[in-house]
Amino acid sequence: MNTQSQTQKGSVPLYAALILFSAVFLFPMYLAVVNAFSAWNTTPGLLPAGFHPENFKYAVTMIDFWKFGRNSLILLVITLGTSTFTSGLVGYAFARIAAPGRNALFMIILSTMMLPGIITQIPQYILFHKYGLLDTFWPWVFWGIGGNAFYIFLYRQFFASVPKELEEAARIDGCSILRTYWSIFLPMSLPVVATVAILNFQGSWGDFIGPFMFLKQDHYPLATALSTISYTQNGSKLVLQSVTTAAALLILLPVLIIYFLGQRFIVEGIVTTGVKG
């Protein structure tokens, strides 16, 4: 590495290292794309074996892709529409309103972040079974309304770093607490709202265990469907690798698009809240 000062522009070895690492990280993705376009039953390599975009067509026609996609969307809308907002409200209360019991309750929120999800999911399964809520989307509504410990934490960190004067000014102007939140704090927290929405999107879109436990196949979202149903040639047990990879890329695509659209918010959100996204 260079021996000049920190502010100097990077040197050749630095860029060589960066390009090398970029190649390493992109390589699997490149291979997946190559494989998705390759002919069936060929040994995929560095270059595609033929050009077969019809693999993507098979990926959506060989299984009931759009039905599973619709289920994914339903779960997504429920989760995004609830958790993003209730988490903000709760985070605000924890950051800005002093009340007895606040610190103890916040410790509880933090410890639920450490809780392996499965430890509550299995008893929930038994309880949902008892109350006839299995194979319905209701559990997602309830979970959404409850918010998410990590999102609450993100909002709380952000709101805690806002100077007190702002609130006092609002108080003098006669704003109620809820009004202060709605018209002053929430608009200011746009980077965090976007960060939470993006994380929420990624979490909901990629979750295949929750739906696997609580739903039946007809209500599976895409991720769960792909983890339980294989693309096979008629009558054979051989999995079609190129079609499966094409389907994986189709699942990945919305995540990439959302990430690119919201990237600057995530970076900003993480800098302002000082925690990992």
Binding site: T86, S87, L89, V90, Y92, A93, F94, I97, A98, A99, R102, L105, I108, I109, T112, L115, I119, T120, Q121, P123, Q124, L127, P139, F142, W143, I145, G146, G147, I152, I177, L178, Y181
Partner: peptide, 21 residues
């Protein structure tokens, strides 16, 4: 104000978090 604002989380936490746990 504090307790009503955290109530969505709190109620769901009791019913769908603490109780199942």
């Amino acid at each position: 104000a504090f307790y009503s604002m955290i109530s969505p989380w709190f109620v769901v936490f009791i019913i769908f978090g603490l109780y199942p746990m």
